[in-house]
């Protein structure tokens, strides 16, 4: 049967899971962006957003700068991107090569029930390029995503892939608790992040565990 339907988020996620480099850190936006990823590929190196719509990309930027030797993949939706489009400019200015951004363009605010976007047809790849991100492209086939993810290590600068998908407004039941503090501690333990070592009267420092 011939169909013009766009791939689903799950199609792209399966391609991502199959091509994700070892040691990759994955930051996913709220709602199904996190719930579905946890269902398909739960790992301590995942940082799930519970809320804070629009802040996935800037958080991923800070993480990529702090962990320059590890690939960081961020998944954000088109609606959330519109809430903080300035983040693209900051990401373009800092341009860390270890950061790969997947923009799910489904044309709606899926995480809040499918409300219409202010503009659902923007060329987000062009927007990223205008923000200083050289490697930005629209992709349709999940197989193309897998190829790009596998080759991301050789890329010079941030990569942005815009993935046109069908909206997925039916909420996926997450397979693990999404307690925010547990998510943070699990993640930081997995990457062996320096932890704060207090002293009795102040002046503690961050030290490697």
């Amino acid at each position: 049967m011939v169909t013009n339907a766009r791939p689903t988020r799950a199609d792209h996620y399966r391609a991502l899971a199959g091509s994700l480099p070892s040691r990759a850190l994955v930051v996913t936006s709220l709602g199904n962006a996190s719930y579905l990823w946890a269902s398909l590929h739960h790992a301590p190196e995942n940082f799930y957003f519970e809320d804070a719509m629009g802040l996935t990309l800037p958080l991923a930027l800070g993480l990529a700068i702090a962990q320059p030797d590890r690939p960081v993949v961020a998944v954000e939706g088109d609606g959330a991107l519109l809430m903080h489009m300035g983040a693209l400019v900051t990401i373009g200015a800092m341009n860390p090569s270890n950061l790969t951004i997947l923009l799910i363009q489904n044309g709606v605010h899926a995480a809040s029930g499918g409300q219409a976007l202010t503009n659902a047809t923007l060329d987000l790849a062009q927007l990223a390029r205008a923000s200083g991100i050289k490697h930005a492209e629209n992709l349709n086939a999940p197989s193309a995503l897998a190829t790009r993810i596998a080759a991301a290590e050789k890329r010079d600068g941030v990569g942005v892939m815009v993935l046109a998908t069908e909206p997925d407004v039916e909420v996926v039941r997450p397979p693990v608790p999404f307690d925010p503090v547990a998510t943070k501690h699990r993640f930081m333990a997995a990457i062996e992040a320096p932890r704060y070592v207090p002293t009795l009267f102040g002046g503690g420092m961050l030290e490697r565990p």
């Binding site: 802040l55 958080l59 702090a66 903080h84 900051t90 990457i191």
Partner: peptide, 23 residues
């Protein structure tokens, strides 16, 4: 990191601290 908006700056700082850097 010169951010474009303070809420964006806050999220960048959270990501940096998540990555183990005092921020």
């Amino acid at each position: 990191v010169r951010a474009t908006h303070e809420e964006e700056a806050l999220a960048i700082a959270c990501g940096s601290r998540l990555g183990g850097v005092r921020t």
